[in-house]
């Protein structure tokens, strides 16, 4: 999947959980889920599970540990899709 398409799909998933609208509007690859978007860590697991469903992949706990920003999320989703 193309990176831009992937980012758009990711944005739809995370939007319900963001608490900083401006950071969301200006989302880039370096945007951090917690520090920038102010997503509560309690919601990170919801996002991880939504990503699993949307991309039809399964994320291991080691993957989850790395998923702190948009770039890391994209890389992990891409590598999971490529290894399918």
């Amino acid at each position: 999947m193309e990176k831009t398409v992937l980012i758009e799909k990711l944005k739809v998933i995370i939007e319900p959980y963001i608490q900083d609208e401006d950071a969301f509007k200006n989302l880039t690859e370096t945007t951090d889920f917690v520090k920038d978007l102010k997503i509560n860590s309690a919601n990170l697991v919801d996002i991880i599970l939504d990503i699993e469903d949307a991309f039809d992949i399964r994320l291991e706990n080691e993957d989850m540990e790395q998923m702190l920003n948009v770039k890391a999320a994209i890389e992990i989703v891409q590598s999971k899709q490529n290894s399918k």
Partner: peptide, 22 residues
Amino acid sequence: IVCLSTANRSKHIGSKRFLDKI
């Protein structure tokens, strides 16, 4: 602190996958 009414809006709360991740 966890606000219960906010937290319980979680879509996946209590599911096996949710519990296994945390």
